[in-house]
């Protein structure tokens, strides 16, 4: 992996990816802080929603780090994180609208991320597209 780092300066973190990682970072920060406050202060009120917030936060952190770092393992983890995130926002978004009682407290993914300007819905799609676009520049091909 160190060899890749030296021979392939551009990975998923440079160019437009720089912006993608920045937005992911902001969401990682926002989701972690929100989950932290919810779990620390009011966990009993809505444990499912708050655990989901924590899970979403973990996925955002993983996606941020995996997109920011070079290497095949990071790329695989980024695929997984963006995929889980897209599935999460679609499933939780649908359930939160169909069964509002299941999520009495809002999470990042409630109503397809409406509370965050639908960015949580758009972000994983952009992430997956970016991973596909940069796949041709993967170390194995370029070196």
């Amino acid at each position: 992996m160190d060899r890749d780092r030296v021979t392939v300066p551009e990975g998923t973190a440079s160019g437009p990816g720089r912006l993608l990682v920045a937005v992911y970072g902001i969401f990682a920060l926002a989701a972690s802080a929100r989950a932290g406050v919810q779990i620390a202060l009011r966990f009993d009120e809505a444990p499912v929603a708050y655990l989901l917030s924590a899970f979403a936060a973990a996925v955002y952190i993983l996606a941020t780090v995996a997109l920011a770092r070079p290497g095949a393992l990071s790329r695989t983890l980024a695929w997984a994180a963006c995929g889980v995130e897209l599935a999460g926002v679609v499933v939780v978004g649908a359930v939160s609208l169909a069964l509002p009682a299941a999520f009495p407290e809002p999470t990042v993914w409630s109503a397809f991320g409406q509370g965050y300007g639908f960015v949580p819905l758009v972000l994983p799609v952009l992430g997956l597209l970016w991973l596909r676009r940069t796949a041709g520049h993967a170390p194995a091909v370029r070196v």
Partner: peptide, 16 residues
């Protein structure tokens, strides 16, 4: 994060 990117995507990060 933006300063290490020597392209238009650096200021894009700052804008966001």
């Amino acid at each position: 994060w933006g300063f290490v990117e020597r392209s238009r995507w650096g200021p894009a990060v700052i804008a966001v």
